[in-house]
Amino acid sequence: MGAAAVAVLATAGSAVPWLRQVSVLGVRSGDGPQGLPVNTSAARAGVTASATTAAYRLEVVRGDRTVVLTRDDLAALPQRTETLPIACVEGWSASGTWGGVRLRDVLALVDAPGEVDVVVTSLQESGPFRRTRLPGGFVADDRTLLALRLDGETLALDHGYPARLIAPNRPGVLQTKWVTRLEVV
């Protein structure tokens, strides 16, 4: 009986909106800012203040070389637009038109070779996906972006403002939001 109750709570959010917060396995709709679902909000991740401060900086690191960029610096770099889906382990998939800087171009600022692994760090202070490793194949892909916009609008805070990773064919949970550091390994 207890297992059945847990299963209902884990999936019922697909049909019962007020259960979405506890229904970790429920399929999400397109509800969310900019028409895409959000699993973890900025408030829940504890990044609202750090993501919206004028003091935000992105560190790009390779060995002893570091470049520090503001969001305005990122916006001044050559911009690209890619239509890419986010496929979530919860069972939903949604596409968006993402705009931002090609990740390779950001890493070129520290003379990184084309296909290197990168550790991506979020402003989140804790959690299993605060730091993720992006394999070199994603880094080399022209479609992998440090996204600043979604569907022509500034990226919503809950979608990763000021900057988020978006890469083709990478699980949604690994599309790091609120990126603050890129380190070539």
Score class of each variant (00 low, 15 high):
Leu58Met: 05
Pro171Ala: 15
Leu74Ala: 03
Gly136His: 08
Ala75Cys: 08
Ala45Lys: 07
Leu148Gln: 10
Arg133Gln: 13
Leu134Gly: 03
Gln34Cys: 11
Asn39Ala: 14
Val139Leu: 09
Phe138Pro: 00
Asp111Tyr: 09
Thr52Asp: 04
Ala76Gly: 08
Asp64Lys: 12
Arg143Leu: 11
Arg62Asp: 02
Val116Gln: 12
Thr97Ile: 11
Arg44Lys: 13
Val38Lys: 06
Tyr56Ala: 00
Val24Gly: 15
Gly13Ile: 02
Leu155Cys: 07
Gly152Tyr: 10
Val22Lys: 04
Arg80Tyr: 11
Leu165Ile: 05
Pro113Cys: 03
Pro85Val: 05
Val8Tyr: 02
Tyr56Trp: 14
Gln21Ser: 15
Thr48Val: 15
Arg80Ser: 15
Ala45Arg: 05
Asp151Glu: 13
Thr40Ile: 11
Val119Met: 13
Gly99Gln: 10
Val173Ser: 09
Arg143Asp: 12
Ser41Gln: 10
Gly63Arg: 03
Val68Leu: 11
Cys88Gly: 10
Leu165Cys: 05
Asp141Arg: 11
Ala75Gly: 03
Leu109Arg: 15
Arg71Trp: 05
Leu69Ala: 02
Pro85Ala: 11
Ala10Thr: 00
Thr70Val: 03
Val24His: 13
Gly35Thr: 10
Gly32Glu: 07
Gln21Trp: 09
Gly46Met: 07
Ala112Trp: 07
Pro168His: 02
Val24Cys: 09
His159Tyr: 08
Val8Met: 00
Ala140Asp: 13
Lys177Leu: 07
Arg181Cys: 09
Gly172Asn: 06
Leu174Ala: 13
Val61Asn: 02
Thr132Gly: 05
Asp31Arg: 12
Arg80Trp: 09
Leu9Ser: 01
Ala10Val: 03
Gly13Asn: 03
Thr52Gly: 07
Gly13Met: 03
Val185Gln: 13
Glu90Lys: 15
Leu174Cys: 00
Arg102Gln: 15
Gly63Gln: 06
Asn169Tyr: 10
Leu123Val: 07
Gly99Asp: 07
Thr52Phe: 01
Pro168Gln: 01
Ser95Gly: 14
Leu165Gly: 02
Thr132Pro: 00
Val120Pro: 02
Gln21Pro: 12
Glu82Ser: 06
Asp64Glu: 14
Trp18Phe: 15
Thr70Cys: 05
